[in-house]
């Protein structure tokens, strides 16, 4: 459904804007997780077919004609694993933030100049 794709792209843009303009490292990570949600919305919306039901064979879906009654299962599977990975990556980034704060007593990204040229 293209409305959902629109919402997803809007979330991606807002998250990207936040990641690029904010200075606080925790807020940059929040921007990343907003981008994450936006990408998942876009991917699921691509697999949606109007008027069809979930890809589970039960009393509502005839086994022989399943291909004409269900939505695409592949984007669902991809997004499902992507969400779990997203949590792991977020936890790793937050751990880095905690470590950086412990070293430098600052969460401001401007205080970390080692990789600037």
């Amino acid at each position: 459904m293209s409305l959902v794709s629109f919402i997803g792209f809007a979330l991606i843009l807002v998250g990207l804007w936040g990641m690029l303009t904010r200075k606080n490292i925790i807020r940059i990570i929040i921007g990343f997780s907003i981008i994450d949600t936006g990408i998942h919305l876009v991917m699921v919306s691509i697999g949606y077919l109007p008027g069809r039901t979930a890809p589970i064979i039960n009393s509502a879906v005839d086994k022989a004609q399943a291909a004409s009654q269900i939505v695409d299962p592949i984007p669902s599977a991809l997004v499902l694993t992507a969400i779990v990975i997203g949590l792991a990556i977020t936890a790793l980034m937050l751990t880095y933030a905690v470590r950086m704060y412990r070293e430098r007593t600052s969460l401001n990204i401007d205080d970390y100049k080692e990789l600037k040229w």
Partner: peptide, 14 residues
């Protein structure tokens, strides 16, 4: 909006 499943997905479903 797609009208049909993609070929791979249709094969999985069938």
């Amino acid at each position: 909006p797609f009208e049909e499943l993609a070929p791979v997905a249709a094969a999985y479903a069938e």
